[in-house]
């Protein structure tokens, strides 16, 4: 069993100094690859050409790209994504613990919740929240708060409830899978040391479950960012709604859709980078050596190209 983990990888440094003569053979040709590459490039070119020839006022996109309304929409979209995910994650953890609990009442309630919210489209849920005034005319929280439902249910609150509660159902399943993935021996060892259930969960199980929970959660965040565009339907002024409004007023509907798409793409790309680093953090201890950051990879590449000797991972 090796204890020394100070191992460098990469083929560049593994060539033996004076081994047998290296094989020099004519490599197999792959003419098919050239053909398929040519076809793919031709298709791509024709699509780009079609868009360039289309009656699209490309100039409108940079003109409005940093428009105040668009920036405001971007911020609202981000705010909505973050808050909905917070509701989703907190709710998801609670639901997951409820589902795994030995109490049949709490676990059935959690099951029912997940069944309902996963089984209905989020757009329908949003409309239901928005129009719940038909069921509850007033909202009455005793002495703290009392108001008409329609003035209580602002677009922001509708959007938050709709997206957050729906997300909680998905997060519950992700969290449950994560908690179940931790070896039972860990719980036993922790209990044997005299640690309570809560401490075991918080200090031992959840940190290890995170490795399983984080990647799909990153996916959910990216998904959520895109799903927030649905809330334009309940009059919330997010990025998509702002772009739509500008497009209708300025007579450049399609252009503004492109603009919105570009913004969504930028935001999801930033989120993907963040996800990579969070995953790397929770991987500590599970792999002998942390994977390199993209920046380290680039550096290693450049270095190996220039010197062809040592590759540092």
């Amino acid at each position: 069993m090796t204890v020394d983990v100070n191992k460098t990888d990469g083929p560049a440094d593994s060539t033996p100094p004076a081994g047998p003569e290296a094989i020099k053979a004519v490599p197999v040709r792959h003419p098919g690859r050239y053909v398929s590459a040519a076809i793919a490039l031709a298709l791509l070119g024709s699509i780009v050409y079609a868009f360039a020839q289309g009656k699209i006022n490309w100039g409108a996109i940079p003109q409005y790209f940093f428009d105040d309304r668009i920036i405001d929409g971007v911020l609202k979209t981000l705010l909505l994504t973050v808050l909905s995910m917070v509701i989703g994650i907190v709710g998801g953890i609670i639901l997951a613990v409820m589902r795994l609990s030995k109490n049949p009442v709490t676990s059935s309630i959690a099951w029912f919740y997940i069944w309902f919210f996963r089984g209905t489209p989020v757009l329908v849920q949003l409309f239901v929240w928005f129009n719940l005034g038909l069921v509850f005319e007033y909202i009455n929280l005793g002495p703290i708060y009392k108001d008409y439902w329609s003035s209580f249910m602002t677009p922001l609150l509708t959007a938050l409830l709709g997206l957050g509660l729906n997300e909680a159902a998905y997060m519950a399943e992700i969290c449950r899978a994560g908690l179940l993935s931790v070896d039972e021996g860990q719980t036993e060892a922790s209990h044997a040391l005299g640690m309570s259930h809560t401490k075991t969960l918080r200090r031992i199980v959840i940190p290890q479950a995170m490795r399983v929970i984080v990647p799909p959660t990153g996916n959910e965040v990216i998904n959520m960012l895109k799903t927030t565009s649905l809330v334009s339907a309940v009059q919330f002024a997010d990025l998509f709604k702002q772009a739509q409004d500008i497009g209708q007023n300025a007579g450049s509907t399609v252009e503004m859709y492109f603009l919105a798409a570009a913004w969504y793409l930028i935001l999801t790309s930033i989120l993907s980078v963040g996800q990579y680093y969070i995953e790397r953090y929770y991987a500590r201890g599970s792999t002998r050596q942390l994977p390199p950051t993209p920046w380290q990879k680039v550096k290693a590449h450049v270095f190996s190209l220039s010197s062809r000797k040592g590759v540092t991972a």
């Binding site: 036993e188 060892a189 005299g194 290890q208 599970s286």
Partner: peptide
């Protein structure tokens, strides 16, 4: 549970599969 945990403090256990906490 808390009383059981209290008693387990005085009893150390070593497992066949070690069960060390891998994230520490």
């Amino acid at each position: 549970d808390s009383e059981v945990a209290q008693k387990r403090r005085d009893i150390g256990m070593v497992f066949q599969r070690f069960n060390l906490f891998p994230h520490m």
